[in-house]
Design a protein around this nucleic acid. Sequence first.
RNA 1: GGACCUGUGGUGCAGCUUGGAGUGCACGCCGGCCUGUCAAGCCGGAGGUCGCGGGUUCAAAUCCCGUCAGGUCCGCCA
Length: 597
Amino acid sequence: MAPGGTAGYAALAAGEFPKAAGLRSHYCGELRPTQLGEQVSICGWVARRREHGEHLAFLDVRDFSGIVQCVVDGAHQLRSEYVVRVTGTVSARPEGTENPALSTGEIELHDCAVEVLSAAEPPPFSLDARVDTDEVVRLRYRYVDLRTERMQKNLRLRATVLSALRRAMEANGFLEIETPLLWTPTPEGSREFAIPSRLQHGSFYVLPQSPQIAKQLSMVGGFDRYYQIARCLRDEDLRADRQFEFTQLDVEGSFLTEPEIQAFIEQAVAEAITAVVGERPEAASRITWAEAIDRYGTDKPDLRFGMELVECTPIFAETGFNAFKAPTIKGICHQGGGGAPRTRLDQLTERAKSLGAKGLVWMRVIAAEGGLELDSPVAKFMSESEKSALIEKMGAKAGDLLLLVADEHRLACEVLGQLRNDLGRPPVYEGPWRLVWVVDFPLFDGVDEDGRPQAAHHPFTMPHPEDLEKMDADPLSVRAQSYDLVLNGWELGSGSIRIHRSDIQSKVFAALGISAEEAESRFGFLLGAFRYGAPPHGGFAVGLDRLIAILAGEENIREVIAFPKTQSGADPMTGAPKPLTDKQLRELGLRLPPKKD
RNA sequence: GGACCUGUGGUGCAGCUUGGAGUGCACGCCGGCCUGUCAAGCCGGAGGUCGCGGGUUCAAAUCCCGUCAGGUCCGCCA
């Protein structure tokens, strides 16, 4: 489904409509020839009005489910977006006037009595999907925008996903537990939203960046399978795929192995995808982090297409080509890419350099007498045996384009992984839906300015048992029991087995440079809890806004959020954020610094 | 904190390169006509601080500087 797709106003099939009640006997979109002759009442908004003289007019009435045409005797007093109730008789349209574009296109309402329930000013922008209205206008009048087919479809799809996830988690015995929104500051990770305390001036709550610690405490509390559709809040800069507040399927389980937790998550995600697209995705593949980097040059590989990274280092072990005297040489074969003009190849080279590569070697594979030849500015620096080995290893055919990067292993892989995506990756919402678990992430991801390892996930992540003894000597090589779920190249979420033993936790804190005192002051309540009987546990969190956007064919999560913020964190509808009154500030014990200049 | 793009009646655009009267298109809005339309059609009309401020110029929607708002991205998001 592409944005603004033509799937219809509602994702409801006949028979799936809720039973109409109150002022209406039916929803607009459910009327069919099967109701011919019945007197019905529908309620909705006037979508359009077509007058044909004093005594004939067509009134299109819209609710979330669709549009139905009402034939009325004059409609001059009715205007767009008036809220009306129409009572009339379901009648067949005269032959030749059916409208196949409408689900109700075979019928219309006759002998209509129209009640205006609410008059309306003209809408501030067109609700027609063909007009691409400025987003700030849509957000200022979000309550109007929500009536559009796009927003109705997206938010109903969102509800379908949440519902499927809840059903799947509960079917597996997970218990929904609500955790506090007013939480305690934990100066670590993302910036937190602060809430001043009225009762204790100078002290603050923060809004949780995730329910991470609360859910782990639930494990200590004996609720061995927890889940929550949880709001998370992070005061970081906004992006197309990031809002201040976002929604996660948050999960934690005790006495479970890593593959078991993954199976529960995968089942829930697969149910959600199935509920939306009507087809169950194939089972997720598994790949280690190291292999994902090696074969796809990324920790979130898109498995819908090949073009895997090819290891070429041995081919050039004895090379005289200076640019290839590097620890690793990797290449990709872009099938049929050999026709690219020189300017395109220069663009690719620039792209590789901007990603940190020293350069990019491109080679066009061309047919020649007695086999294949390589056309490249640097071909002359390679021996015949190197060239033929390269062609064979790459599986290259005439017309292909070979791209090679020589550098440190990880950099070479990541540059080519990005080029692979640039050249071959289909739009994310194009099926098939390929899930992959990326497992065995490193425990630490690089070092900070002081040479300290940085936690790749969070400091409670359990190291891989086989790597525990390497913790002191070679911390950067220690693998973690942490894992990501990736859908078509998008990271859906991540999780880990947590540390529940204080001796291991101390080692990790030590590696991170967190002293015992510091750990106690920051996470004391968690470490304290672990002294009172902590079960082995682990969990996961799925970012739902992204998942829903992908399933809705939207590139921006604002399109699947009812009331989102702009990139500067403002809400054009309410005007938030706004100053507090002096009285409010006094009550909170806050005083603002004088305004500059 | 930074880079780039955008800002013109209610909406969507063109005009900006190469300065010359708020010029144009489509939708919407208001009035009229119209008995089978469905983005109905036809006729008429109203509606503008060209985001805002400053500069250059005889003259600025157009060129320059600043600023605000929106978007995309980098940084940031354990």
